[in-house]
């Protein structure tokens, strides 16, 4: 059952010079109760921007959100109702807890905001901590964030998100700042909570392996656009978009995935991302396929914007290679499935 529907979500950022920068371009998807949707894509592709727009931390330029089929309000009562239902877990657990307050404060506040009486508050706080495996809960309530490990902090952040009993949790790279040894633990925790509470989970990540393992559907994002989406196994095992193929081939000597962030962006002086800067201008123009400068299969037709093609089974790809007419013309030599050009 779809909890949150996203239709044509578009986010523009004003730039100091030049036209507006479109970080998210007409993105549509839906979050389903009890399912995890993974959103992958390289740095700067707009994943966090989507999460922030869904968390109502920034106002989208265009598009519509439907919560349980109803349009979402922008302020007041309606916004609060929405917030109660859609919670977020941030990337950096060292930054997402207020250093001035205890664990207890972080869990009490959302409860109080949505009208939980003072009486019985502590029991609920402890129950929340227990639900994220922070036991014994009483020993953590009065601890400060700096007294906790990264993993413990992220558990507190998850408990805070659960406090309002939401239907949707947006997890923006929830484990990327954590030590490798506890990543799986936290992901398993989220997965278990999703199952127990029938949550709709948006899991943003660089890591294709965990994306496949933990999610039902995967969306691949490139420069503000969803270029490929479909059932997790299908997308990972039979990547259809040249970009997805590149991602999967980016770890040498390995057939299976793959950490996206190892597709190291080129850094210029002062840490500016050279490729990003160059392609940013292009992405702003929004004509043709955005990937064509890096695409090994680029064709003439690619200078027009590709439409989404259905490969069956809900596996969609935005690439001309899979357009029946283009395939006909080129004698069907195109559409390489998994012919990932390693070393490209």
């Amino acid at each position: 059952m779809s909890v949150l529907q996203v239709q044509d979500l578009t986010v523009d950022f004003a730039q100091r010079r030049g036209p507006k920068f479109r970080a998210v371009d007409h993105v549509s998807f839906e979050l389903v109760a009890g399912e995890t949707l993974a959103l992958v894509g390289e740095s700067g592709s707009g994943k966090s921007t989507i999460a922030r727009a869904l968390a109502r931390l920034l106002r989208p330029t265009g598009g519509e959100l439907l919560l349980h089929g109803r349009p979402v309000g922008h302020r007041g009562r309606k916004l609060r109702d929405y917030r109660r239902e859609v919670q977020m877990v941030f990337q950096d657990p060292f930054a997402s807890l207020n250093p001035a307050y205890t664990v207890g404060h972080h869990l009490r506040r959302p409860l109080r905001i949505y009208g939980h009486p003072r009486k019985g508050l502590e029991e609920v706080v402890e129950a929340l901590l227990t639900s994220v495996n922070m036991v014994p809960a009483t020993s953590f309530v009065s601890k400060f964030p700096h007294e906790l490990s990264g993993g413990q902090r992220q558990r507190v952040a998850i408990a805070r998100a659960l406090a309002t009993q939401p239907g949707v949790i947006l997890a923006d790279e929830p484990v990327s700042m954590l030590d490798v040894s506890i990543r799986l633990e936290i992901l398993n925790l989220l997965d278990g909570l999703k199952r127990d509470r029938d949550l709709a989970l948006l899991y943003i990540t660089h890591d294709l392996a965990t994306a496949r393992y933990f999610s039902t559907q995967i969306m691949v994002m490139y420069r503000g656009e969803i270029v490929e989406r479909g059932p997790a196994d299908s997308v990972i095992l039979r990547p259809a978009h040249p970009y997805t193929q590149l991602l999967e081939a980016s770890v040498p000597g390995e057939r299976t995935p793959h950490r996206l962030d190892e597709l190291a962006p080129v850094r210029g002086a002062g840490g500016t991302n050279v490729i990003l800067a160059a392609e940013r201008a292009e992405a702003t123009a929004a004509t043709g396929c955005r990937f064509r400068r890096r695409c090994p299969h680029a064709m003439d037709v690619c200078s027009t914007h590709p439409v989404e093609q259905d490969l069956g089974d809900g596996h969609l790809v935005r690439c001309w290679l899979h357009d029946p007419k283009v395939r006909e013309k080129s004698g069907d030599r195109a559409a390489p499935q998994q012919s990932a050009p390693s070393g490209a």
Binding site: R52, Q87, M88, F90, S96, P99, A100, Y101, Y114
Partner: peptide, 26 residues
């Protein structure tokens, strides 16, 4: 734009409370 301020907004905290309770102590 610190995450804990954003998190307070996501929690539904009112603006004046965010300033006085979440921000000023820091």
């Amino acid at each position: 734009s610190r995450d804990y301020i954003l998190a307070a907004r996501v929690s539904g905290e009112r603006p004046w409370r965010i300033v006085v309770v979440e921000l000023l102590p820091n």
